[in-house]
Design a protein around this nucleic acid. Structure first.
Lengths: 199, 199
DNA sequence: CCACATTTGTAGTGAACACTACAGATCGTC
DNA sequence: GACGATCTGTAGTGTTCACTACAAATGTGG
């Protein structure tokens, strides 16, 4: 029995293009026509490979998460909690204003509030954002066990704070904030981290 | 000459309902059917009064800004810059988790990234967010002139930082963060403000 | 070379969208 | 009370949306 005609496009490369469209226009703002044009495929190929528009988003998010995890590994590998926070903030400032990508972050620009037909999209994005926060918190728990953080420092609070700041930077980036502006926010945020991690 | 049949609905009350729909579902996710149902009017009444879906959003934003300005006056009226920052952050934490409204803030949940047909909606929202940041900065400029802020403190930097934090809290609120969680973020953020305002 | 399985491009499908034509209703004015 | 003007409700309009039927194309296994 034959194995069928082989796929004529590279799925990962196509997902990178889809990611960019979702990122720039949001889930609801992105149309199948825009997606297929960017991916250089026709609708039937999209639906055969990913099932639906939402399936495509999840596949794009999976690919996004892969890159993000590799990036987070570098951040979490910093020797001290303070340096983890600094890298996390500064790298975010740079990534969110990287001209190679749309401004901000797919996990925020993708859609915070959606119509009734796409109600689970914001949940999906939130789950991925929470994952990053979880990684930070675990790293800070570890740091505290090693006395790299003060006794009064709360890993959950610190992780949530950093998570909120980078989400806020996404909002600023989407309205045209410069890299320097985001870096300045990052530097100010670090002061709070320093104060709070002493306690 | 006659003055025509009078309008049978209260425009401000209708705008309050529209505001809630845009807030919960975002600009693109909100449909005319949902809006007219919430406003208790029919499409022709909506279009006669507001011109278009985007016109309705702007009218709703104008009404939102009215309430916001009254609220900001209270915040900016605090005696010291430090108290302005504290009120701004804490009141935001409460407002964004007020069960009377959808989570977050209309100026963020309304839409950060939209489709090509609604490309100016994110700009419109960003302009209103910037207005709040401008108000904060001016207040801090004033505070610095009165030696209520240290010589090294930069009003623009402080205002931008606070603006970013509340935007981040919007993102967290939209994914279900509790009031206490947001208050904790606010308290941590204040430490950065304190450190930065000394300089 | 011949079944068979899968993909591809063309060309649509029904549904939902923002928006509106139209006729009847309700006002102020003459 | 008739008139001009504006609003209201019904019932649509054309367009765009996500999605797909179908047949030709292209691969594998026998």
């Amino acid at each position: 029995m034959g194995m069928g005609r082989p796929r004529a496009f590279d799925a990962d490369a196509a997902l990178d293009q889809a990611m960019e469209v979702f990122w720039r226009h949001g889930y609801e703002g992105a149309t199948i026509a825009q997606l297929t044009e960017a991916m250089h495929i026709n609708p039937p190929s999209l639906y055969a490979a990913f099932g639906s528009k939402e399936g495509l988003l999840k596949a794009a998010l999976d690919r996004y998460s892969e890159k993000r995890d590799a990036w987070m590994e570098k951040v979490l590998g910093a020797p001290t909690a303070r340096e983890v926070a600094e890298r996390f903030l500064m790298e975010h400032a740079d990534a969110q204003t990287d001209p190679a990508n749309p401004p901000g972050c797919l996990l925020v620009q993708g859609g915070l509030a959606c119509g009734t037909g796409s109600a689970n999209v914001p949940f999906e994005l939130a789950a991925r954002r929470n994952h990053t926060e979880d990684q930070l918190r675990e790293r800070f728990v570890e740091a505290k066990a090693q006395c790299d953080l003060g006794d009064g420092a709360e890993p959950a609070s610190l992780a949530r704070y950093l998570s909120a700041v980078v989400s806020g930077m996404c909002v600023m980036a989407s309205s045209g904030a410069s890299r320097d502006a985001l870096r300045e926010i990052a530097m100010v945020s670090l002061k709070a981290f320093d104060e709070q991690s002493k306690g």
